[in-house]
Nucleic acid binder design. Sequence first.
RNA 1: AGGGAUGUAGCGCAGCCCGGUAGCGCAUCUGGUUUGGGACCAGAGGGUCGCAGGUUCGAAUCCUGUCAUCCCUACCA
Length: 493
Amino acid sequence: MSDFITKRSEDINQWYTDLVLKGELADYSDVRGCMVIKPYGYALWENMRDVLDKMIKDTGHVNAYFPLFVPKSLFEAEEKNAEGFAKECAVVTHYRLKNDPDNKGKLIVDPEAKLEEELVVRPTSEAVIWNTYRNWIQSYRDLPLLINQWANVVRWEMRTKLFLRTAEFLWQEGHTAHATKNEAIAETEKMLDVYADFVENWLAIPLYKGKKTESERFAGADETLCIEALLQDGKALQAGTSHFLGQNFAKAFDVKFQTESGSEEYVWATSWGVSTRLIGALIMTHSDDHGLMIPPKVAPFHVVFVPFLQSKNPEQNAILLNKCEEIQAKLKEKGIRSKIDRDDTKRPGFKFAEHELKGIPVRVVIGPRDLENQVVEIARRDTLTKEIVSQDQMEIYIEKLLEDIQSNMFERAKTYRDENTTRVSDWDTFKKQIEKGGFVIANWDGSAETEEKIKEETKATIRCIPFDIPQVEGKCIYSNKDCNHTVLFARAH
RNA sequence: AGGGAUGUAGCGCAGCCCGGUAGCGCAUCUGGUUUGGGACCAGAGGGUCGCAGGUUCGAAUCCUGUCAUCCCUACCA
């Protein structure tokens, strides 16, 4: 059947693409490198966004919106940041089209309408925001300034992959200004914890938290903290980052404030972001050969009802649908989102497969036999098991079941992650382990040269210097020098 | 950006070598029989063959260019 998806064991990249397309999360567009997020995928994003937005606000931040376009002169003000993004920027050079005199009905760029200064389509908003902050910050009383924005950004990628790497993507970016270095560092750490909380407890994706090495650091940052996930293809994925920007942007944009004692100082900055890439992480962490598996806490629908409708039996259909609506109303009181599959042209087996493909956590099946017996059949997506449950108190059963599914999905992902995290101490084992996939814990001498050599020879990078794995004395996996940096290696997306 | 492959109906493909009326399967629509794990029968609709040039009496087919997608490298959230 054409609707079947490729098995993970056959081709995991095709499996992933099948899940996104056939699960109706997104579609390819006719625009290079850009995708269309379909209603079902966008509903998932909205749920994720709403939860995270609340967490960001609960930690004292407010939302604002800054322009899509960045004048080139502003963009280049912070040199390291500009250099880091330069080769993936889309640039607007003209502001007008006109009719093509040689080709009726076609348009050409009007050469008369060249912009005096080119506009960079934001790959990130530090430049525009810091240029604005200069005007907003005069005194220590204006600090801290804690602002977040939900926006789209563009990074001109050569090779794209649905959700995981697209030219345009949606994200949130927080940009904060502080009076002291310590306060900015605390903010950087706090937001990393917010991300970790969100990703582990809502998306059910286990993480390693840590800090980036200098070579993996965000351009323009003094320190980059990150959360790293392990996907089912054995590759690591940076799921979110939080940057301590020092005074780099304050100096580049001349953002100073007057202290209580009257002196003038540059402010300290942070920025932090997560994107629609998290949807890719979610898909690649939880799904199986039957399709998507969406954690209940962010699923567009918690429950789908499949009544056994028969096109020639409208009376019975009405009774079945009534029963579904009755249960649906009770579920709604508990905050459980559900939908009823009212299609009477498809057979039940087809529908089961369809809803499994879309990853709906719980399926409630009800037919004439169940009506007689006052029961329903409840199937859970994570284990694919079914149970017959009495119709009274169903909403309590389902509420509990959703919690079980959420925690089971996290535990299962954590087991996979832990089983694929290996500590090694010799180079041969290191290479073999990297080849197999997963995280490899090893000691590193701290030098960029060693890091680079390891990358050249194994394609593995240092994902982070992890916070939750003890730093131990030992010899560097590559150079054999004594050292005490214990780091996390993996091949990454 | 480099190497390889592919663009023909909504999807998956055949036809191309050897130029001569556009095909198949799935999906869709209509009617009927079905319905507790991806139903069956009959009929119907749907395509400027990625796009632009060229060769030719004639191009899906040959030639040139171009764009896009997929895989492998490089880069990246």
